[in-house]
Amino acid sequence: MSVSNLLENWSKFRHTHPVGDKGHPDWEAYPSEIKWAMSIDLDACTGCNACSVACYAENNLPVVGKEKYSHGQAMHWMRIERYWDEDKREVPNQGAQFLPMLCQQCEAAPCETVCPVGATNHTEDGLNSQIYNRCIGSRYCSANCPYKVRYFNWYDYPTTENVWPAPMEQQLNPDLTVRGKGVMEKCTFCKQRTYTARNNAKTEGRKIHDGDVQTACQQACPTNAISFGNLFDPESRVAKQWEQQQVELIKEEQEKDVKPGNNLRGYRIFEELRPYPSVMYLERVRESDV
């Protein structure tokens, strides 16, 4: 520890915004070739919950049981929301609307700045990381998350009865931890998978290709509604979709919002709050003339 350490710009450890942030003083020091992003086509999403169950399987999510669920203590990183049209009809005439909601991995994440111990940070591949070891459980991140997609370990689930009764613990994925009580957790974009894919690519001396990595939800999704990949790679499906929908990461208002009649359907939730989410949704389309 020296005075120079103390005077260093600590915020850089949190503040690498790879896209459109080249003016950032630390861009040179911390360049990145990867910005993970997602797009979810609500038109394809059928609300079947496969992604959510896949997430439980992949990410060691505890099943909390009826009582804790009733207290709002469920741990689903990926939750499917079901909305009805609010057109005052007696019966809905266009079905329901489904919205898979997961951590939006914001570029200017409201959760990151408020954590007192810096347990949630921005990684250089554009994710909000959550360092379970560092978390002290102040829950400020969740308080400041507009999407409420952070889930707190209200109990010590590994030792709670009927969460992982033997031999169910054998199913736990050893690539990531099982979280104990008192820490915050949330969707990681399947960090263990992206990490492996990056390592493999590095070993093979190449860049990450689209398709090298799939998140668990994406892999399960029966309708391919979810695409995930590197927004920096112009060949990736995600980059193409963002490009085509003219959605830009560091913007709180997109072409679609400013130009009426533009035939676009890509949007991000709560863009106006400027968290710059990494998840783009594509509007659900329903036939106009039936």
Partner: peptide
């Protein structure tokens, strides 16, 4: 005991959450 909150399936008029668009608009 359900996932849905007290607002049921309503989005309370928030502008961009689950958005639906008519097919002639895209």
């Amino acid at each position: 005991v359900k996932e849905e909150g007290p607002n049921g399936g309503s989005q309370l008029g928030r502008p961009k959450i689950a958005v639906k668009v008519s097919s002639d608009k895209v």
